[in-house]
Design a protein around this nucleic acid. Structure first.
Lengths: 204, 204
DNA sequence: TAAATAAACGGAGGCGCCTCCGCTTTAGTG
DNA sequence: CACTAAAGCGGAGGCGCCTCCGTTTATTTA
């Protein structure tokens, strides 16, 4: 019988999946990376055979790692959300709190922009897979909350704002129609929002 | 300029579609009929080529009439709802009001049962296409309301029930798990519901 | 290092989707 | 009825999906 403590911990951390063989791990990572690019440029209905080819693996390998298109999309999506949240920490480290917040919101908006085209399929995935939804939206709003609290604590923005309100304000971007000047508009929206947040702040 | 009244009426009745040529109409009807059977037995992911073949037409013909799978599914679905509502009138004509209600509810339940397997795809279609949802649910609840009101008016069931309550009660069927004795269960549910409705009725 | 074995690879093949366009049929017109 | 234009037909063809299994490769063992 195996050491119960080790087993239990391993189970909690990585549920029942032994480490992949080196080549398998390489191929898997490569596939996710390529898929992220291809989905971004061609949409989530892009050809999986194309993705396999660009990743330099056979279609069979793709299907072994990701039994359905949705599996692959989910992994890519989670990775992107992770990147977004990681960027929040990075920006917080390298800029004054209010600037970090502004830069991050801009990046968030850009990210949403790239997802607009995929909205239908992605919405479907997010409604079907409720775990995915709660995980990712929790991560994102958590990142935003940290940035806002830090900015408020430093006195760079007013202290009386609620993170979820700001989240909703950014959400207004969704309702904007698909005009060509979309990017500019959203950029202005973020600036406007920041002005509002800075208004009446203690420290400058 | 065309006669405005004729135009307006034609527009309201059949929005901008001139009558089909005889052969086209024949093929279209045939396709819908075959599709209904095939969807029922194989699910809404059944092969469209199979449907075309069984209907004795080329795949091109199917696609001309129904540009996407969803179009075809929608037409089939509307037809079935129509059938269900028509059955309500028919039953009302041929049976005492309470019996008509009971028979119809049984039929409704059976109908839902056949749709259980398709639930995911159908739910998707119904959430995507909100017109379809409101049209059909309106039709169905209307049919039910008529039956209930007639039964209440004739004194065969109590007069203090609300049609929407009964609708909800039937909806409880959805929550039942996919056990093998599903049919029997739902049959008993309908009987139980009818007993409740008859309890304390004026006329027997 | 060599052999053994378990893990992973990859692409052929079969099937369904959907478009495109040359051919057929229908519904008017004289 | 004969003719014609418009409407409709249909299936070949190209592409993507996904499975299956013979071959290759990483890891373990001796």
């Amino acid at each position: 019988m195996p050491d119960p403590q080790t087993t239990a911990e391993a189970m909690r951390e990585a549920p029942a999946q032994k480490p992949l063989r080196a080549d398998a791990r390489r191929n898997r990572d490569r596939l996710v990376e390529v898929a992220a690019q291809v989905f971004a440029s061609d949409g989530v209905d892009a050809s999986l055979e194309e993705i396999a080819k660009r990743a330099g693996v056979g279609i069979g390998t793709l299907y072994r790692h990701f039994p359905t298109r949705e599996h692959l999309v989910e992994v890519v999506y989670r990775r992107e959300v992770e990147g977004l949240c990681h960027a929040a920490e990075e920006l917080a480290r390298q800029h004054p709190a209010d600037v970090a917040l502004e830069l991050w919101m801009q990046r968030f908006v850009d990210y949403i922009a790239t997802k607009r085209g995929l909205a239908t399929s992605l919405r479907l995935l997010l409604t079907t897979n409720s775990t995915l939804f709660s995980d990712t939206s929790g991560r994102v709003s958590g990142a935003m909350r940290s940035l806002i609290e830090a900015a408020a604590a430093s006195g760079k923005i007013r202290a009386d704002v609620d993170a979820s309100d700001v989240m909703h304000a950014l959400g207004g971007i969704y309702s904007a129609p698909n005009t060509p000047d979309w990017r500019d508009r959203s950029g202005r929206l973020v600036k406007l929002l920041m002005d509002g947040l800075r208004f009446g702040a203690k420290n400058q």
